[in-house]
Computed example of a mutant assay.
Amino acid sequence: MRNEPSFVYNAPARAFHWLTALLLLIQYVLAWTMPDVHRDTKPVGLIAWHLGVGMVIVLLLVVRLVWRGVHGAPPEPDTLPSALRTLARFTHALLYALLIAVPLMGWANASSRDWSVTLLGVPMPPLSRAGSSIGHALGDWHRNFAWVLLALVGLHVAAALFHQFVLGDGTLRRMLPAHGDRARSEQ
């Protein structure tokens, strides 16, 4: 086993990353295909699925943050300029914040509509009281910040492609399973 550090994320961190990406893709497809939510809308069908996937995203992000807190991230290669490293850290922090905040705003909005919210079949407590004007307003914020999150994900993908094809610095390989599974040392 080599003593040099691995710059590749460990297998669980990579799994959390790609599962989050898959759940977000599913969530946006559900959001774009479900019926519009109005005063008398019931949380059935695609709306119920949207609520459920949102709750799984919250759970996944909590587990992911705990994992990251315990295991940390691999060291960053020294080839990344300081300004890009700072921008990457800021963007990642904002991604994590929105990945938690957007579903929580949706949960609070659902609670204000007196909808039951469950996580894998387990009822969750309401985040706002039924009829709450703040809970209703958070529905608009949920929608607006979902667009911000989508734009940020697009920026994240564009940055990965920039690193791969313009800088050629191997940053993208840090999160790719095939490369990481061959790495001798993992976090």
Rank of each mutant, 00 (worst) to 15 (best):
H71A: 11
G54R: 05
V117Y: 07
F165T: 10
R129I: 09
L155W: 10
S133G: 06
I57C: 03
L30N: 05
A97Q: 04
L65G: 11
V66P: 02
V122I: 15
F7C: 07
Q187Y: 10
M105F: 14
I47Q: 07
G180R: 12
P126V: 06
G168W: 09
A178P: 04
R173W: 11
L80C: 00
G106H: 03
V29N: 00
S128L: 04
L84V: 03
L138I: 03
L60S: 11
R184P: 02
R39V: 13
W115T: 05
S112V: 09
Q164V: 01
W107Q: 02
E186K: 15
P177G: 10
L119P: 03
F7R: 10
T79Q: 06
R182P: 05
G170Y: 10
V66L: 15
G135P: 07
L127V: 02
V153M: 14
M175W: 12
R14M: 11
P77W: 00
V44L: 14
S132A: 08
A101R: 00
L161P: 06
Q27E: 10
Y28L: 14
A151H: 02
G54H: 09
T118S: 15
L94W: 06
A93E: 00
E4N: 12
P126H: 08
G72Y: 02
G106S: 03
L150M: 12
V62F: 13
R68D: 06
P43H: 08
P77H: 09
V37G: 01
